[in-house]
Structures are given as structure tokens and as C-alpha cells.
Amino acid sequence: MSALLQAELLKLRTTRTFVALVAAALALSLLVVVLVSILADEFNDNDVRNLFTADFTGLFIVLLGVIGMAGEWRHRTITSTVLAAPDRIRLLAAKMLSYAAAGALLSLIVTLTIMLVGTVILSLRDKETADLADLVDVLWRNLLVAALVGALGVGIGAVVRNQVAAIIGVLFAAFVLEPTLLGLAPDYGRFGPTQGAPSGIIQVAGFDGEDTENLLAPGVAVLVMLGWIGAFFAAAAARLRGGDLV
């Protein structure tokens, strides 16, 4: 398994996709943090904490996982991948684990960067800043979410296989379906894999005026995410195990 993990991580490092997604996630997250840190007047402890969860790694990581797995079919490299690692279930598991690790790494880079930049700007403006305990709390939650959605993305890519359809589906779920459900039927929306459950882990509902009472408790949210990952893993494994690669 360790050889498979190393190979998948090497695959990630040897294309421009990972670097491009890190850069995009970092740029977008920094843009939000810089603008809010500079322009917002009133800050309390919770607002600062929310500010540092404004990294976009979750979305980028789920897309990275989708691209990484569905890309095996798009570029028709799945054949050579399976020839090198004929145990398809181990291969799928290794891919999920490696993208979870990559997600955590990407989130680490982005979260530390926005924490540093945001804290510097807020300090220069004599605004409230988060203490170290709060920063650490935000950091591990971000890393956990990034790892989980990385694995989820691989599962989605392995089930859908058509890269474009999978990406459109994820974006639709993240920007349309789940926000709508969270607004209209939060009892259902909070179980969603791209917004609802991750928000429960991070325990962020939004700035001023919103609270976290509609969110799942962090532990429950983690279990829900693991459930989604398990479901996609099982569906993907069934497709992979029985399918012909022609």
C-alpha cells in the first residue's frame, strides 16, 4: 500500500494541476481575507475565527480528487494504472488516502498563509485578532475537512468517471443544491457532503447574524462525511471490481 500511496502522490506532484489548484485556492482565499481584514470595521472573536475558515481549499480539493480519478479514464491511463496495481480496491483506497493527504497539505499551506496575512493586517489596524488556541482549532478543522473532501472527490470521480460531468455535478451541489437545501430545509441540507457536513466540522455558519445552531455537531459531521466517503467508495469499488477495462 505504501508504494501505491507514494506513486499516487508522485503522480500529483508531476503534473501542473496540483500546483495550479494550490495557487488558485491560495489566491482566492487571500483575496477574501485581505479584503475583509482591510475593509471590515467591526470585528469580534467569532468574526476573526470565521475569517480564517475562508480558505477555498475544500472546493478545490474535491475538484482535485475528481480530476485525479476521473482523469484516469479521460486520459485512458486507467489501463496502465491497473496493470501496475491489479488489486483495484487497494488502488482505489490508495488514491483516496493520497488525495486526503494532498488535501490536508494544500489546506495547511493556505490556512497558515491566510492566518499570517490576516493577523498582520488586523494587528496593523488595531483590530481584534485570534489567539493561538483559536488558530490551532481552526487549523485542524480545516485540515480535517480538506482531507475528507479530497477522499470524497476521488470517490465521486471513480463513480461518475466522466470528468466534465463530475466537475459540473460537484459545482452544482456545492453552489446550488446544498445552499438551497441549507436555506429551505436545513435539517436535510446540513447532511450535504460539499457544504453542510463540512460546515458542521468547522462550525462556521457565516458572518454576523448567523449562528451554528442548524449545523451538525463536529463529531456527527465527521461521521456523516465518512458515511458519504464510504458510500462512494463502495459504489466505486463495485464498478471497478466487476468492470472490464476495454
Binding site: 508504494a3 501505491l4 507514494q6 506513486a7 508522485l10 503522480k11 508531476t14 503534473t15 501542473r16 494541476t17 482523469g71 486520459h75 485512458r76 491511463t77 489501463t79 496502465s80 501496475a84 496495481a85
Partner: peptide, 23 residues
């Protein structure tokens, strides 16, 4: 195989490095 395919953005050396690590 007849339809041997590679990730277009990966170099030939890196393609082989991935396979070397896997194997």
C-alpha cells in the same frame, strides 16, 4: 497495449518514475 495512453502533462521520465515506485 494497442491504445497505450499517458497523462499528456507528465514527462516521459516522470511517467516511468511513477511506474517504478508502484512496482
Amino acid at each position: 497495449l494497442e491504445d497505450a495512453s499517458f497523462h499528456p502533462g507528465r514527462t516521459g521520465r516522470n511517467h516511468l518514475r511513477v511506474l517504478a515506485v508502484t512496482g
